[in-house]
Design a protein around this nucleic acid. Sequence first.
DNA 1: TATTGATCATAT
DNA 2: ATATGATCAATA
Length: 234
Amino acid sequence: MKKGTVPFSKGLIGPPESEAELLSRAWDVAGLTLGELGACVGVEVPDESLRAKGIAGQILEKALGATAGSRAEPDFVELGIELKTIPLDAGGKPKESTFVCSISLAAMADTDWERSTVLKKLSKVLFVPVEAASDTPLRDRRVGRAYLWAPTPEEQRLLRTDWERLAEMIAAGDVEEITGHLGEVLQVRPKAPHGRSRRRAPDEEGAVQWTMPRGFYLRPAFTEAVLARLRATE
DNA sequence: TATTGATCATAT
DNA sequence: ATATGATCAATA
């Protein structure tokens, strides 16, 4: 397809029926700017992202036919694939951490790695790189070529090690001791609409305490390594 | 200046 | 309210 052409009618596209179809769609939009792709799906791109932080993700969801809405499921439910845009700096390296999922602090004691939301979300991920050099206006940032990622056994081991350590702390009532410093590849950080948000969590006696909502994030160095591996093996 | 902690928008 | 989509901005 010629660069700049539109592979679908305005904002109306169903979910992809296969992995191959999803990849085909993703590769078709590579090279377009957020402004161009936004126009295709009926999303206006503001000048700056301060009040449009999730705009790249919203646009790609629509463009690729992800099931709209906020549910604790993969973006492409039938395919079991999660969509993540990843902001790249001028050097092609991830500029930010990658949010994985919010944490149900009170339920952490009753789950394990195999059944965790983190593993479910990360079993298969379509990473869509997006230019994010701060001197490039939001609407002029280009979408890159997407990569489909499934964690290798080694990558799973790294994730599992961090997850188990952090889950144990939460379950033991030590959520307030957790900082962003913990975790080699996976970290726990605040995830809230504002500073007054509170969520129930166990305290050290097993009683309830109220604390900031938290989420799991992938460190940039980890996603950088993942992208490097995917680039090398294609 | 890299990283952690805080925050913004939308959907259900 | 709380999930989704993330990036901003204060700190070390």
